[in-house]
Amino acid sequence: MRIYIKDKPLRIKKPDEVGDLAQFNGIVEDDDLLINEKLFKGNLLIRNATHSTIKSVLFIMHNKKLKNLSSITVLTENYDEAIDYIKSKFKILKAGGGVVYRDGSILLIHRLGKWDLPKGKIEKGESFVEGAKREVQEECNIKVRVNQKICTTWHTYTKGDKSILKKTVWYLMDCLDDSKMKPQLEEDIDEVRWMSENELNVALYNTYMSIAHVYNKFKKLKKTQSV
């Protein structure tokens, strides 16, 4: 499981899921020293993590300014229990979004100063597919057809006194009609734009890490389809 906290990835993995340790700048064992945020820099690996360690990691990532941190990978033998523990600390919301693809271009929205992919909250009674399609069509004022699932992302944020963990399921979509395309202003979207791969690579410098992750998953999916 990969969770984005303040746009930095926290990966929860089983010990056998990590091979090359050279990818990490620091490797520590589970101990009381983890409450010291000075350890949180570069790509950090934490081994033999307990629930107490995970709680400390969540607190530090939410409450400290970790300018030198790139990512944290936590290894635990009790993977399922760890995931359940993390989820118990948040209110979970469901969302759906789409990578709308047409003739080598992808549809991006510009919202609150960042380039983003269209997405939104799943309404009561909706499936992820239904909600993702509705949100993409509403935010961009286009018609789409859902093709297949790309991936799932998780990210956290705070709303009032509540800690939210949002699960977003992403789908590859085909554009059926963009003749009336326009941004949904009431959702703080000020631009909707088709971008080529070169344009998108520039836009990724001003987006969220979770969106870059979705794009990379999309590229891998398209590559397998072209083989």
Score class of each variant (00 low, 15 high):
90 F>G: 02
160 G>C: 00
110 H>S: 11
96 G>N: 11
126 E>Y: 00
169 V>D: 13
67 K>C: 12
97 G>P: 13
134 R>H: 14
86 I>D: 00
119 K>R: 14
128 F>E: 15
156 T>R: 14
66 L>A: 09
130 E>A: 13
132 A>F: 09
145 R>P: 08
94 K>P: 06
139 E>H: 08
67 K>S: 11
145 R>E: 13
120 G>D: 12
149 K>I: 08
163 S>K: 10
108 L>S: 11
106 I>P: 13
175 C>R: 01
66 L>T: 03
122 I>P: 07
67 K>W: 09
176 L>A: 10
148 Q>G: 15
170 W>P: 09
71 S>G: 12
155 H>F: 15
99 V>A: 12
152 T>N: 06
89 K>Q: 15
127 S>H: 08
155 H>R: 12
105 S>F: 07
80 D>K: 00
128 F>Q: 14
81 E>P: 02
126 E>A: 05
110 H>W: 08
72 I>G: 02
140 C>G: 02
123 E>F: 12
162 K>D: 13
159 K>L: 10
136 V>A: 02
94 K>N: 13
102 R>K: 10
173 M>A: 07
75 L>N: 08
84 D>N: 06
153 T>E: 01
179 S>I: 09
121 K>E: 15
150 I>D: 06
161 D>Q: 15
95 A>Q: 05
84 D>I: 00
68 N>P: 10
101 Y>F: 13
78 N>M: 03
94 K>V: 14
122 I>F: 01
98 G>L: 07
96 G>D: 14
157 Y>K: 10
168 T>W: 02
133 K>S: 10
72 I>H: 06
103 D>Q: 03
128 F>Y: 15
71 S>E: 11
159 K>M: 09
84 D>K: 05
134 R>G: 11
117 L>C: 12
142 I>F: 05
67 K>E: 11
161 D>T: 15
117 L>R: 02
97 G>R: 05
108 L>V: 05
132 A>S: 15
113 G>I: 02
100 V>M: 13
165 L>Y: 10
83 I>L: 15
176 L>H: 03
180 K>I: 11
133 K>C: 06
130 E>C: 06
69 L>Y: 04
95 A>G: 13
152 T>V: 00
79 Y>E: 01
134 R>E: 12
85 Y>M: 04
88 S>G: 06
174 D>Y: 07
174 D>E: 14
117 L>Y: 02
182 K>S: 11
182 K>D: 07
167 K>N: 14
115 W>H: 09
161 D>M: 11
70 S>R: 08
95 A>W: 00
